[in-house]
């Protein structure tokens, strides 16, 4: 029995299928995870501002409480409201992005159905679990966001997010002198944990802001549509 993966008039896609029901290539899905307060939502907001003029974007949030992050994005007006969907997670975002991705898959498909073809969907996880990673059935690539204030030993400690994420973002570098975090040590530890996988140090308050992360996203998108 085959799964109709490339069947052009088949029923709705199942999970990670790269094509829409009509056979066209679906939007690239990038997950953003990381601990509470590391700046995931701020990074999503900055990415939307940086990319929205050239790309058709949407965001799915997985909050601990229903719509907190979605409300932030709406208040900041980074995207029109119909492009932001909040998924309820039963208090467990990590379950919704890793163990039972069905509600998130509904959300990304409904967004593509309702706002038209999209280039990129950012799926943000609530920060309930330092070890939470996205299922490959849900996203094509994932960004793990930590910050310097959360302790400069996080890269050394490793864990699935730090070790395996396609991009590690060390956020709030502007705070390093105030919290006594050693950026060089964080970079060395990250290198040791991640080998060739990229790491970006960013401060959304600096002039460069989200530029490096946005450039990485554009590269992924170029590879996706190639």
């Amino acid at each position: 029995m085959h799964l109709d993966r490339d069947h052009h008039h088949g029923p709705v896609a199942l999970s990670a299928d790269a094509h829409r029901a009509d056979g066209s290539r679906r939007a690239l899905r990038i997950g953003l995870g990381g601990p509470v307060g590391s700046g995931k939502t701020a990074t999503v907001a900055a990415l939307c501002r940086a990319l929205r003029d050239k790309l058709s974007l949407a965001v799915v949030t997985n909050d601990i409480y229903t719509r907190e992050d979605a409300e932030f994005l709406l208040r900041e007006a980074v995207l029109p409201p119909e492009r932001i969907t909040a998924v309820e997670t039963g208090a467990c975002p990590h379950t919704a992005i890793r163990d039972d991705i069905s509600a998130n898959l509904e959300a990304v498909e409904d967004l593509e159905d309702e706002v038209g073809p999209l280039d990129l969907i950012l799926v943000e996880s609530g920060g309930d679990n330092l070890t939470a990673t996205f299922s490959k059935g849900l996203v094509d690539a994932q960004i793990f966001v930590i910050d310097v204030a959360g302790g400069d030993d996080i890269p050394r400690k490793g864990g699935p997010g730090v070790t395996t994420a396609d991009l590690l973002v060390v956020n709030k570098t502007d705070l390093a002198p105030y919290v006594g975090s050693d950026l060089a040590r964080m970079a060395a530890d990250a290198k040791a944990q991640r080998a060739e996988l990229p790491v970006v140090f960013q401060s959304l308050r600096s002039e460069t802001g989200v530029t490096d992360v946005a450039a990485w996203v554009r590269e992924r998108l170029a590879a996706w549509t190639a």
Binding site: L3, D4, G10, P11, S102
Partner: peptide, 25 residues
């Protein structure tokens, strides 16, 4: 209906059959 759709999605991978595909359509 949302839960029905989510169940069908998981089931179509677990027990792929034409009947489940038809239900999704």
């Amino acid at each position: 209906r949302r839960l029905g759709r989510q169940l069908l999605r998981a089931a179509r991978v677990a027990w792929p059959t034409a009947e489940l595909d038809a239900l999704a359509r």
